[in-house]
Design a protein around this nucleic acid. Structure first.
Lengths: 193, 193
DNA sequence: TTCATTTCTTAACTTAAGTGAACGAGTTGT
DNA sequence: ACAACTCGTTCACTTAAGTTAAGAAATGAA
């Protein structure tokens, strides 16, 4: 599991064995069972998450129903808005599967960044990368119909369709579960018919 | 016009008069007439834009029609994706109104950042701010219907509805111009009826 | 001004998503 | 093993957006 983490980090910066040991000594790894809620609406947490194994989702609770806006799987990280702005969270985060996570709070983050200035560089690279990716994703969402969005997902993150419940996928695509069922049936008909 | 710029910058960092003069000597200001295309699909530009006055829009050309995904007005900046990744642009940028812009290319950016390390700090603050804002906007878009999105726009950026053509607004809201007309009529009926 | 173009609205019709309800399959807990 | 629940699908019906077409209003250019 540690190898996975250091392998990821090595894409951005290089660490000495001493540095690796020091990071491991902080004991940031944490396991969470499927269904565990990591962050609740209204809560004011300082935690940031990085998924080493499993899948977590971010969702809002609006008019009595969950609306999932993001999934994070292996090697993806999530810094909740409430952590940045120090405000109550507007959304929930929970585990779609059993997970192994790297959980850091702001204090630790500051500690790590002051000990290893390299880390700050990596964080900046990550956030720039994320900003660009986010813009592309947003544009893609705006310029696509629900059906196209489903087909895109099938192309780009086929694993999600397998590992995530349909009703969560549906809201992620911006539609209701019944519409997703219908849409899938429609696509099948086209390809077989 | 310069005052506007320095007033904006002062929210993030403070500049001496000497520094201000040096920035002005770079002659970054540029006027562009309504309708001017600043960036074309396929083009590999290094320019970044900051709007001092006017409004620019970013749009894709898909299946023979324009889809507007963003508007930038006073004190908003746009760093095209192609500039970051050094790839051909996937979208167009053009002026909705007569504009006064601050245009910088990467070389200038590097020059400015090396002369004034403060600037790098400001850029980082801006990009973090932008990332957070972008995430909130994306979630808002996903969790809203076209009608709600229109009402939100009316609340948050009422000026846009006045200064931007309806058909561009429509695609920004994720619908066709006819649907926007209908939607507006529907809202009027509700509020008067 | 006049003519052409663009922009916005309206209408009739089509298509797709929302809604409410029912059903069966699979899970969970007791 | 059984009841309670969750989940995905299907159906009938409603609502909203897409499409096509037409015409009015505003804009721009000759």
């Amino acid at each position: 599991m540690q190898d996975i983490l250091f392998n990821f980090i090595s894409k951005y910066i290089s660490l000495t064995d001493d540095e690796k040991h020091e990071i491991l000594s902080l004991d940031l790894f944490s396991a969470a069972k499927k269904g565990t809620t990591l962050l609740k609406e209204g809560q004011q947490s300082q935690d940031e998450y990085f998924v080493l194994k499993g899948c977590i989702r971010k969702y809002y609770f609006i008019n009595g129903e969950e609306i999932t806006t993001d999934f994070f799987t292996e090697m993806e990280g999530l810094t909740p808005n409430c952590t940045i702005n120090n405000t109550p969270s507007e959304y929930f985060i929970s585990c779609v599967e059993d997970c192994i996570l790297l959980v850091t709070n702001s204090d630790m983050g500051i500690e790590i960044n002051s000990k290893f200035p390299k880390f700050e560089i990596m964080c900046r690279m990550l956030s720039e990368e994320l900003l660009a990716k986010q813009q592309v994703d947003f544009d893609k969402f705006k310029t696509s119909s629900p059906e196209q969005r489903y087909l895109n997902l099938l192309q780009n993150r086929p694993d999600l369709i397998q590992r995530v419940p349909q009703h969560q996928l549906a809201s992620y695509l911006g539609i209701k579960p019944q519409s997703l069922s219908r849409l899938r049936a429609r696509i099948m008909e086209k390809s077989t018919g």
